[in-house]
Amino acid sequence: DENEERIRAFALYKGIDPEKARELWERGEINKDDEEKAWREYK
Rank of each mutant, 00 (worst) to 15 (best):
D1H: 10
D1G: 12
D1E: 13
D1F: 11
D1P: 11
D1I: 11
D1K: 11
D1V: 11
E2T: 12
E2Y: 14
E2D: 14
E2Q: 12
E2C: 15
E2P: 12
E2I: 14
N3M: 15
N3L: 15
N3D: 13
N3W: 15
N3I: 15
N3H: 14
N3K: 15
N3G: 08
N3Q: 14
E4I: 08
E4N: 08
E4L: 09
E5H: 09
E5G: 05
E5W: 07
E5M: 08
E5I: 07
E5T: 05
R6E: 04
R6M: 11
R6V: 05
R6S: 03
R6H: 08
R6G: 02
R6D: 02
R6T: 04
I7F: 05
I7G: 00
I7T: 01
I7D: 01
I7M: 05
I7N: 01
I7A: 01
I7Y: 05
R8K: 14
R8F: 14
R8M: 14
R8D: 04
R8C: 13
R8V: 11
R8Q: 12
R8S: 05
R8N: 09
A9L: 08
A9V: 08
A9D: 03
A9G: 01
F10Y: 15
F10H: 02
F10W: 12
F10I: 15
F10D: 02
A11T: 01
A11E: 01
A11M: 02
A11W: 02
A11Q: 01
A11K: 00
A11P: 00
L12S: 09
L12V: 10
L12M: 13
L12A: 13
L12W: 15
L12K: 13
L12R: 11
Y13V: 03
Y13F: 12
Y13I: 05
Y13A: 05
Y13P: 00
Y13H: 04
K14G: 03
K14V: 13
K14Y: 15
K14M: 15
K14P: 00
K14S: 11
G15K: 09
G15W: 00
G15Y: 01
G15H: 08
G15A: 05
I16F: 04
I16L: 09
I16P: 00
I16G: 00
I16H: 00
I16Y: 04
D17F: 04
D17K: 08
D17P: 14
D17T: 15
D17Y: 03
D17M: 07
P18G: 06
P18E: 15
P18T: 14
P18F: 15
P18C: 14
P18H: 14
E19T: 09
E19P: 02
E19N: 08
E19V: 11
E19D: 13
K20M: 13
K20T: 14
K20G: 05
K20N: 08
K20S: 11
A21N: 00
A21G: 01
A21C: 07
A21Q: 00
A21W: 02
R22N: 02
R22K: 12
R22P: 00
R22D: 00
R22V: 03
E23W: 08
E23I: 08
E23Q: 10
E23L: 10
E23P: 01
L24K: 03
L24C: 09
L24V: 03
L24D: 01
L24Q: 07
L24P: 00
W25S: 02
W25E: 00
E26V: 11
E26N: 11
E26R: 10
E26L: 14
E26W: 08
E26I: 13
R27L: 10
R27I: 07
R27N: 12
R27G: 06
R27M: 10
R27A: 13
R27K: 13
G28W: 02
G28M: 05
G28R: 04
G28E: 03
G28K: 04
G28D: 05
E29V: 07
E29A: 09
E29W: 07
I30G: 01
I30W: 10
I30E: 01
I30V: 12
I30M: 06
N31G: 09
N31K: 08
N31W: 06
N31M: 08
N31Q: 09
N31D: 14
N31E: 10
N31A: 11
K32Y: 10
K32R: 11
K32S: 12
K32G: 09
K32A: 13
K32D: 08
K32L: 12
D33P: 04
D33A: 11
D33Y: 09
D33F: 09
D33W: 08
D34E: 15
D34I: 06
D34T: 05
D34S: 03
D34K: 01
D34A: 05
D34Q: 06
D34M: 06
E35L: 15
E35N: 07
E35T: 10
E35S: 09
E35F: 15
E35A: 15
E35K: 08
E36I: 08
E36D: 10
E36N: 06
E36V: 07
E36A: 08
E36F: 07
E36P: 01
E36S: 05
E36C: 11
E36R: 05
E36Q: 07
K37P: 03
K37Q: 14
K37N: 13
K37D: 10
K37T: 11
A38T: 02
A38M: 06
A38R: 02
A38V: 04
A38K: 03
W39G: 02
W39Y: 07
W39S: 02
W39E: 04
W39L: 06
W39K: 03
W39M: 07
R40K: 14
R40P: 03
R40E: 13
R40I: 12
R40L: 13
R40C: 14
R40V: 10
R40S: 12
E41S: 09
E41A: 14
E41Y: 13
E41R: 07
E41V: 09
E41W: 15
E41D: 11
Y42G: 03
Y42V: 04
Y42H: 06
Y42I: 05
Y42N: 04
K43T: 14
K43F: 14
K43Q: 13
K43S: 11
K43Y: 12
K43I: 15
K43H: 12
